[in-house]
Design a binder for these strands. Structure first.
Length: 149
DNA sequence: CTTCTTACA
DNA sequence: TGTAAGAA
């Protein structure tokens, strides 16, 4: 259970050895090694001990995706391409939100989500806020900069 | 017990 | 891909 930020941070740093990953994803260790050989997945590092492969959480996701498409009937190579498409799209979505979300501000005592510039020309910013359970939008001019020019 | 590589079915 | 073998 994730209760605080440090837990979330640790989540992103989770590392799995091949046996764990195999059980988690329902894929044989033989498959994982083969997929790695095919460059479909990659061990992020090798544990000093027995030169054991160490996989990241991202790789776990990748394996799940390939497994998913494999179960759907795709051949391994095709399943890999499919998973790449999904990840690519997911990255785009992530970048989109990261670029769009400018934080939350308090406006007139209400929390407003800063959605970035609405009108670059007139220096207006778009906000989204709660209006009786519905999403309402409003624009607000950017504060004048005193030192400008 | 786990992982690794190599080799064979 | 599964499984076996020998090593670490």
């Amino acid at each position: 259970m994730v209760n605080n930020l440090s837990d979330l941070v640790n989540l992103t740093n989770l590392r799995f050895k091949i046996g764990e990953l195999s059980k988690m994803a329902g894929v044989s260790t033989r498959q994982l090694r083969y997929w790695e050989q095919k460059k479909f997945i990659s061990a992020n590092e090798r544990e000093a001990d027995q030169d054991a492969r160490v996989f990241s959480f991202r790789m776990y996701i990748k394996v799940l995706l390939i497994k998913h498409y494999l179960d759907e009937g795709y051949k391994l190579a095709a399943a890999n391409e499919k998973s790449k498409d999904v990840i690519e799209d997911e990255l785009w979505l992530h970048r989109f939100f990261e670029d769009s979300f400018k934080g939350i501000e308090l406006i007139d005592g209400k929390r407003a989500v800063n959605l970035g510039f609405f009108d670059q020309e007139n220096r207006q910013t778009l906000y989204g806020f709660n209006e009786g359970g519905k999403i309402s939008y409003a624009v607000k001019p950017l504060p004048e900069k005193e030192e400008e020019q």
